[in-house]
Design a protein around this nucleic acid. Structure first.
Lengths: 151, 151
DNA sequence: AGCAGATACTTGAGGAACTCAACCATTGAA
DNA sequence: TTCAATGGTTGAGTTCCTCAAGTATCTGCT
């Protein structure tokens, strides 16, 4: 047998590294799926990621927070999206400092396709019995600190 | 329908997106831990990642495979590690095309510290009862395709 | 009112990481 | 020997990102 498969005789340390590796591997697959879906739509990864985070009208600052990156970075990414005609900047009349991002029709369409395709790939990936999926969700939720299961 | 918080009445589709988000969030935390551990050792993320993948003497090609990236990319990363005196290139006498990467003493030391610190942060993150940790491992293992659990 | 300080965004410089195409050296086999 | 395949490097080019500085606008305080 391969020495990492089914042995209950593993240290807690080893279990931790295994967990970390698995999370990275899973995230890697997910990202790969997302990126190739993005590539099919001729979108660089970061622009695609920004696109799926847009709904309604979003101030650039908020987008920067969601992507947890510098504001000036968002400027560049949005420049790209605007160049492609997927989004427009509208200055908020209530506070003329902020620019609200609004999807164009094409942007809307592209976002939906992107979301659908990457969702499909994710569905393939999480091919588990339904109970296991919820179980996995619950475990990850506590790890991610996004809140307990039973409120 | 904009609401997505805590209802147990969620569609399978929603469960999938939730899973994807959670995996990304968890991986993000892990990476953040790793990156800041790397920064403390004055290492850029990619170089740090390469470093922890080195043990004994590894051909550059193998490293490229482990990192699943282009060979020329590895050249640049190893250039950085060599500049810092953490690794040396040795031409393999058996096949003079291949260069084997060998850690220097300092490289060894730095790698161990890095591994230890990022492991610590991972341990903090995966703060679960022991049974849950194994359960999580098993679920992720099937998802990551690293082998079925019940043969 | 008016000024000080915060906030939203942009610009520019700079760097890290990555890919691709072209290239050299070496190997292994027809 | 000759030729295709392999390991590695180089150089061009892109994307993504950060930091420092600058502009415009808003808010709080006096």
């Amino acid at each position: 047998m391969t020495d990492q498969a089914a042995g209950p005789a593993e240290s807690a340390d080893q279990l931790i590294t295994e967990l970390a590796d698995l999370v990275f591997a899973t995230a890697g697959r997910l990202r790969h799926g997302f990126n190739s879906a993005a590539a099919e739509l001729d979108l660089p990864p970061a622009q695609a990621l920004a696109l799926v985070n847009l709904r309604g009208s979003v101030p650039m600052r908020d987008l920067a927070d969601q992507l947890s990156c510098d504001a000036s970075n968002v400027t560049g990414i949005v420049d790209g999206l605007e160049r492609r005609g997927l989004v427009t900047r509208c200055t908020d009349p209530a506070d003329r400092r902020v620019k609200r991002l609004v999807l164009t029709d094409e942007g809307q369409r592209r976002r939906d396709v992107l979301a659908a395709r990457s969702h499909d790939r994710a569905t393939e990936l999480f091919d588990l019995p339904d109970g296991d999926r919820q179980r996995l969700r619950d475990l990850l939720a506590t790890v991610a600190g996004t809140g307990q299961r039973h409120p």
